[in-house]
Each structure stands twice: as C-alpha cells, then as structure tokens.
Design a protein around this nucleic acid. Structure first.
Length: 886
RNA sequence: GGGCGCUUAGCUCAGUUGGCUAGAGCAAUCCGUUUACACCGGAUAGGUCGUAGGUUCGAGUCCUACAGCGCCCACCA
C-alpha cells in the first residue's frame, strides 16, 4: 500500500470503474424483484454555467442517501438531469452574441435557438463532468433534460389537460414587464432596490380641487380616478363626483372613489389612479369598474396619440410633465422620499407595470377530478394531512411547513407565459377568433402558433414523474386523463425524498406538489429535505462579483473529493446556512489521510490475511478487542439511525470520533503492545465494517482501500446489519478497557500536576479489588502508553506504599506512583482535589436538603442524585485519609 | 407594515421530551514523539448559554418584554 492516497490520480479511475460496472443503474444489480425502491431526482442544475458549492452539497447529501440505501439492498435510483432555465439561459446567450454585434432579432428565432441549444449542451457537459468529480452515483443512462422531446410531450399534454379542465386561461393583467427582456416577470423574479426619488405634489388642473402626489408623473396621463380613504374627512364630500378636465394638454375623466387601502398619511392622502401601470391601481379599478388607459408601451416609451409625449421614454416624459405643471403653476411641492424601485432580477432594468395578455393557471378553481377541490387546496392538504391515501409530505426541518402554508394560502393565479424564445412553446394556435390547444398542429390553413413560451417552473414542476418516462410515445391522453406507459414510473414514483436548498421551496417544491397532484393524482415525494445555503466565512452569499466563491472543483483538486464532501455535510444542520472555509476542508483532508494510514497500518500488521479462513473466536478476545468491537457495534447502530433521520452531520461526526479517537489513538496503539492471534482478525473485521460505514460519505478512498483487502466493489457490499451485532456477548468486559484508558489518563495527569520530569521513570502500584485479573492483560499497554512507568504491579490488595503519589481513580481502584514523591506537592494536590470534591458535595447536599426537590422531583432523579452524593462522600473520606497518612 | 428564525468558549457550531453544577472541532498555551500518520500524540486553559422578568423542586431548553442580527412576504401611489 502506498504511503498516501493519491486522490488526483485515483478518483477519476475509481469513478470510471464504477461507471463501467453499471451499478449506478439498479437494473444491473442483482436485487429481488420485490425489493423496495428508493428514488431521488437530482434538482436539475441550470444550464447557464457551472456548479457552485451549493450544488456540491446537494450532490453529496443525495449521494450519501443513495449509496446508503443501495447498500441496504434497496432498488436505489438517482436520476440526473439539467434545466433549460429559460430566461436565465436566453439572457446569457444574448450577452454572448451581443459581443459579436448580434441580437436575437438579427439572428432570427431558429438560428438564435440553435445558439442557445449549443450553449446549453456545452454547459450540460461541464455539469456532468463536475457531478462525476464529486463521485455522484447517478444513473446516467436515465439522464433527462427539461426541454427534450419526452419532457416536451409531457408539458404539452399537461397543458392541454389543464386547459380542458378550465384551469388554464388567457387574460389581461398588469404584469411586471421588463422593457429590456421584453417579457413579464413573475412576482418572485422581481428584485427591489432602495432608492431616493422625488415625490411631486400637484393638481391635475385648476378645476380639480384635490392635490395628489406621485413619483411617476408621466403615468398620470393614464389616470382615470382619484382614490381616497373613505374615513378621510378632507375628501369625504367629494366622493362620487366626476371631473372632466385637461391635464398638461391631455383630456382626462376623473372620478373620485373611496378605497380603504389608501394611506391617509402618505402624500396628500389622495391617490391618482393609473390602472394600466400599477398592480394595485389595476385591482382597485377592477373593483370600481373603471376604464384602463395605457400610456406606456412594451419598450418603456409613451404610446402614440399623446401628442408631444409620444415616443419619449418614460423618464423624459416625466420631466416634460413636471415642467408643464410648473409653468402652469399647478406644481405645489417637490419632496425627496425613500422608496423601492423594482428591478428585473436578470438584467437589473427597471420594471414597468403593464397590462398584457398572458396565460394563467387558475389556482382557486374547483376541479372535478379532485372532488371539487382547487389546486391550491390540494397542495395545502398534501402537506397538512396527506392526499390520495398517502401520508402527509414531511418537510425537514418542519419549521418550513409554516412558511409553505403561509405562501400557499396567499398564492395568486400563476402567470405561465413568457415572451421569450427559449423554452417550451405554448401549444396554442389562433385563427381569427378561434383558439386551438393540442399536441399536434391543427388541421386546416391559416393557423398561427402562439409566439410565447412557458415559465420554466411549469416544466420543472413535473420533474419527478416526467423523468421516469423515456419515450414521447409513452405519454397519452385517454378520456381526459394522463396515461403514462412506463415501468419506471410504476416502480419508482413517488420519489423518496426531494433534497434541495430552501431558497427554491416556493419556486420549485411548491410547484412540483401542485403539478404532480394534478397530473398524476399522487404526491411527487414523501419527504422534502431543505438544506441551507453555503456561504463564505462571514455568512455572505457566495457570488462572483464579491470574489468570495469557493469553487468545489478547486477544492477537489486541492484536497480531494472525499474531503470536500465531508466539509459540506459535517457541521451543518438542515435549513441553516453553513459557513464554509478552506481550513474546514483541510481538516477533513487530514481525516482522509488518517483513515488511509489506519488501513495502511492494518495492512502492514496483518500482511497476507485470508479473510475466508479466519474468523473471530470469542473466547480468545482480550478486553481491548472486546472494547473496540462493542464501540464499533454502537457506532453501527447510531450511524444507521442517524442516516435514517437525515442527520448526516452527526453520523459523520461519530464516524470521525470513532476512527480517530477510539480506533487510531487507542486500539491501534494497544495492538502494538499485546498482539494475540485474534488481533489480526479483529483489526480486519473492524476495518471492513468501518469502511462500509464510511463509504456513503467518502466513496473514493473507501473503495480504494477496499481493493487492497478484497475483491469486488464496496459500493455494492451489504450495509452492516443488526444481526451481525448480536454474535458477540460483551457482558461487562469492554468496560475494562475503558478503565485502562482512565488509568493511563490519570497517570499522565498526575505526572503533569506533580511536575515529574518526562524522562523520569517511576514505578506504579495499582490496587484494583475486582478488576485486577482483566486489568493485568493491559499491563504492558499502560506501561508503554507515554505514562513513563518503569515497572507496574496490579494487585487485588496491598499495603499502601509510603512516600508515593496517590491517584484515586474510582471506588475500587487506586494508583500509587512510587519513586517520584514530593510530599508537599502531593499534599497540595490532594487538598485541591478535596476542596473540589467539597464543593460538589455541598452542592448536592443542599439539593438533597431541599424539601421541595425531594418531594416534587421524579423519584428516579432524586435517587440518582443520592447515589452521586454517596459516591462523592466515599471518595472524599478516602482522600482525607490519604492526606492524614502523608 | 406582516411573518419566521437566530444570539451558547476567541472562531465554527452541537445540545433530543426541562434533570449527573454546559459539549465538540479549530485557534491558544504547555509537554511529548520521529517505529501507520507532524496533514502526529498527550494535556491545560477558556462560557454568569444576548439582557431583564416569569413559570418550575429544577431553565441553555418553556412563557413575556427588550436589544442586536438575519431571512421571507407584501408594498411604497
């Protein structure tokens, strides 16, 4: 075995070996037909670029789950894929072609889409490479893409179903329009930025008695009303009145209306109502049956027919309006106010609210196939109480359930159309006033297809079931029902767990629940595991512009994939952000090195070891052997139960503690001093099991070490089983080794406290009433473990030696160090420990004297405290005696 | 404005249903070792658990208020 694990060379080799074996595909594993299946779909990364630390964490957690369940004998399937991420990808490619002096319009739809696909393909290749670097055991034979033919058929089919059910409708609404992207944005795609802007106070004209305030004077050209609060005494008398007037040369008809939403304290308490260019105004206008006057067009410019304003940009027009008002003496005041401006999350262009014809999913309409419940209600119920006979979907951590409910409750109709080219084109055709929705082109002449595409979440919302279909022909609509003819779908759906970062709970997770319950009448997954974001050491989101990005590929290059994986998983709890630093990864690199060295030591010690011919002989185990085996059994149980409850951090931590502290620092040291025939066997048994337990976390190094000792791949070995644990009867024996460790610690401690020179050899007499026999086994070990003991005697009973340092270990065990005595120091030390004891005794005595405690606390606890007190008192009297003796 | 969460050792975090006068890793200090591993071993020190009340025999854990930090949602005419 080489001196070190050369991860740079080995990792790629090992991944290739796994892939060649075909074991990532459960069809190739020899599993009984009735085996439980365990499915995870990888949240498809956007094909906009490369993977970051957050992706790496997703990959690690899911790989741990998949490898664990595969080893447990389940039919474990993990499906890879990528997301076309419509707007994001299109914007990215537009930026690229801009450098060539092109726009999408100059290229044309077909050519442009070719460029986007080309870009998407190369991004996809990078992403696949990165996944492999991480060691992800994804079944590449089932790789999917949100925009491939099969997924497209699924999208169109579900669209048609929803349309026929009346759940998809076309309507006009004020949307967040990005004049640059030429597309509306969903509410959650809008970003707000703090800003100071001017608030203008003015009157429309001399005829209108109300002063209003606005930050957008140009939109006032489209005002249809003035809204005031019904409680506002200033305007009460005017409510209901109408004014025909001329505002900076444009004719307006203004009605004074009352609306409770109007803030009396802002501005003048009167709101100029512009239905076409404000979401809120649109709603008020609808309630009051008011006209909509459009002023600004899709380019962010003033529309035709408004005289001198036409063709000007909104801000130019704004200035002109203000200037005119000032000249007419209608402008009363200008004021600086803080407000937020809405920006496009992709290009940072200011949003222009515009009325626009869009496609929507109606989330409130009652659906017949759901016994009259709406999409919203079903989605809520799926998490609240369970639907279609399934248990409720579990969200981990469950604090996010509240957020889910809150969000779902407030969900408005979902605008699914996007005015971009890249994406699933809406399967709708128009001819005159006819509309055709279908999977195939309509018959007859003169139909034109809708130019728009669908929101990317419309397709990714179907990801759990759409990925389990492999040919477009397997998707059919029969009797207004979706029929999926796929064995995979029957076998692997619903998926077991959806694991993703919490920031897309609403974008994606909620849409998956909505779309899946509707389309296949089942839940998409049983559990949702939400991980936190990976941030820099200051808790800030990693971003390229801040330069604080830790690139997982760099880390893999530097510290290996295994160390990188551990650093992403240990010390992190679900739903909480995790600060990642290079030092942390370095720490785990050291651990990997430790594991390698443990294996190397075992290999060197045991040499050619025939695992088939040698097995544990319980009678010949010494108490160090039993100790480590018991610890290993406990570890097996707790790692297993931690993994079952998604506690990756704890299980990794426990594995680390066992490997480093118990195995390397104690047991391996012990084997150096007292080898028996069984030592080899125990060493190998421990290593074998430990490697299996480690494997889901650090697949590469465990696979490599495994190959030093065994044939075959560790990745398809069986997970250590409970049955395996019951073979050895431990009884009380393992505690003896704990005692040994305690003795060694006490002696080291005493040497330090008494300032005994390190090189000075002393003799030790250990009086152990009950345990002297078994302890004798560990005599050499105690002597050699840096205790500086020259000669050691372990006796059941003996005269207490004079001039010796006394070390009380427990009730039945006393240690005397002979030949290093310093009476004063020893006395001093004893006094100190006596006073220490005194304090603890006082504390407990007080507690026991407290009537309330004795009466009211549970008996078990009172009993415990009493026993503790007795123990301490016994110890105390022993020490007192010792002090006297000196 | 509405909602949610966080505050424990210098740093990063654990801490189950309240119960053995608070745990780990890193950093610090001291000691040791070069025989699987210096990317090593051993030990030490360091916390009135954000503040103030309350409930309780008992509070890091439950309740209330306050302070600081963060996130989400709505919205700024």
């Amino acid at each position: 075995m080489e001196k070190a694990f050369d991860f740079k060379k080995e990792e790629d080799k090992i991944y290739k070996q796994w892939q060649d074996s075909g074991f990532f595909n459960p069809d190739n594993l020899k599993i009984p037909d009735d085996a439980e299946s365990y499915t995870i779909v990888l949240p498809p990364p956007n094909v906009t670029g490369t993977l970051h630390a957050g992706h790496a964490k997703v990959l690690t957690i899911e790989d741990i789950l998949i490898r664990y369940h595969r080893m447990k004998g389940k039919r474990a399937l993990w499906i890879p894929g990528t997301d076309h991420a419509a707007i994001a990808t299109q914007t990215k490619v537009e930026k690229i072609i801009k450098q060539e002096g092109q726009t999408r319009h100059s290229l044309g739809r077909e050519k442009f889409l070719g460029r986007v696909e080309e870009f998407a393909r190369s991004s996809r290749d990078t992403i696949v490479k990165q996944c492999k670097k991480m060691g992800a055991s994804l079944d590449w034979s089932r790789e999917a893409y949100t925009l491939d033919k099969t997924r497209n058929k699924m999208v169109n089919s579900v669209f048609k179903l929803m349309y026929d059910d009346g759940l998809i409708y076309r309507g006009e609404r004020v949307v967040n329009w990005c004049p640059r992207c030429h597309s509306p944005l969903a509410d959650d795609e809008v970003e707000y930025k703090e800003n100071r802007s001017k608030l203008y106070y003015f009157k429309y004209s001399k005829d209108v008695p109300i002063t209003i305030a606005t930050t957008r004077p140009e939109t006032k050209l489209g005002d249809v009303a003035i809204a005031v609060n019904p409680k506002d005494e200033r305007y009460k008398a005017l409510i209901g009145k109408e004014f025909d007037t001329e505002f900076v040369g444009v004719k307006l008809k203004l009605k004074i209306i009352a609306d409770r939403g109007v803030d009396m304290d802002f501005g003048t308490g009167a709101l100029g109502l512009t239905p076409a260019h404000s979401v809120i105004d649109w709603q008020i206008a609808e309630e009051n049956d008011l006209k909509v006057i459009k002023v600004i067009n899709e380019d962010g410019k003033i529309i035709e027919g408004l005289g001198e304003f036409s063709g000007k940009t909104a801000s130019e027009a704004g200035e002109m309006v203000v200037e005119k008002l000032r000249k007419a003496g209608l402008l009363e005041k200008e004021e600086e106010v803080d407000n937020n401006i809405s920006l496009c999350y992709r290009c940072d262009t200011a949003i222009e609210p515009l009325p626009s014809l869009q496609w929507f999913v109606d989330v409130n309409k009652k659906v017949q196939r759901f016994e009259g419940k709406s999409l919203k209600e079903i989605s809520l119920e799926a998490v609240k109480s369970g639907v279609f006979g399934r248990d409720k979907i579990r969200i981990i951590p469950n604090s996010f359930e509240k957020k889910y409910f809150y969000w779902m409750d407030n969900l408005r109709d979902w605008c699914i159309s996007r005015q971009i080219w890249f994406g699933h084109r809406i399967p709708v055709w128009y001819r005159d006033s006819q509309i055709y929705v279908g999977l195939e082109d309509p018959e007859g002449e003169g139909w034109t297809r809708d130019q728009d595409t669908l929101d990317t979440w419309f397709s990714s919302g179907m990801w759990t079931f759409s990925t389990l279909v492999h040919r477009p022909d397997d998707i059919k609509i029969v009797n207004n029902k979706l029929v999926i003819e796929s064995d995979d779908f029957q076998r692997y759906h619903p998926t077991q767990v959806l694991e993703t970062a919490y920031d897309i709970l609403f974008f994606w997770v909620a849409k998956m629940i909505l779309m899946t319950t509707y389309a296949v009448k089942d839940i998409p997954f049983y559990d949702v595991y939400l991980q936190g974001l990976v941030t820099d050491t200051e808790g800030k989101k990693m971003s390229k512009s801040k330069g604080n990005v830790i690139d997982p590929l760099d880390m893999i290059e530097k510290y290996g994939a295994d160390a990188t994986r551990l650093s992403l998983v240990v010390g992190s709890t679900p739903g909480n952000n995790m600060k990642l630093s290079e030092e942390k990864i370095e720490g785990f690199r050291n651990l990997i090195k430790k594991i390698w060295n443990v294996a190397r030591y075992i290999k060197l010690e045991t040499g050619e070891y025939d695992r088939k011919r040698m097995s544990i002989n319980e009678d010949e185990l010494n108490n160090a052997d039993l100790w480590i085996l018991e610890k290993l059994d406990m570890l097996t149980l707790s790692v297993t139960s931690d993994l079952e409850s998604y506690d990756f951090s704890n299980s990794g931590q426990k594995l680390k503690d066992f490997t480093w502290n118990d195995l390397a620092d104690w047991y391996l040291e012990a084997t150096k001093f007292k080898k028996t025939d069984q030592t080899k066997v125990v060493l190998n048994v421990v290593l074998e099991r430990l490697l299996k337990l480690w494997h889901p976390f650090i697949p590469f190094v465990t696979e490599r070490i495994w190959s030093e000792f065994n044939d075959g791949d560790i990745m398809i070995e069986n997970w250590p089983d409970r049955k395996e644990l019951s073979k050895i009867e431990y009884g009380d024996k393992p505690k003896v080794f704990d005692l040994t460790l305690e003795i060694i610690r006490s002696i080291r401690n005493a040497r330090a406290e008494n300032n005994i020179e390190p090189k000075r050899k002393v003799e030790a007499l250990i009086i152990a009433r009950d345990q002297s026999e078994p302890l004798n086994e560990n005599k050499v070990f105690i002597q050699k473990m840096r205790t500086g003991i020259d000669k050691i005697e372990i006796k059941k009973q003996a005269e207490k030696p004079k001039d010796a340092i006394f070390i009380p270990v427990s009730k039945d065990i006393e240690i005397y160090l002979i030949g290093a005595i310093d009476k004063d120091k020893e006395k001093d030390r004893l006094r100190r420990s006596a006073s220490d004891l005194n304090e603890r005794i006082k504390f407990l005595e007080n507690k026991m004297a407290d009537n309330d405690f004795v009466k009211k606390a549970p008996k078990k606890i009172v009993e415990n405290e009493r026993m503790r007190l007795n123990k301490l008192l016994a110890e105390k009297s022993k020490i007192d005696k010792q002090i006297k003796d000196i």
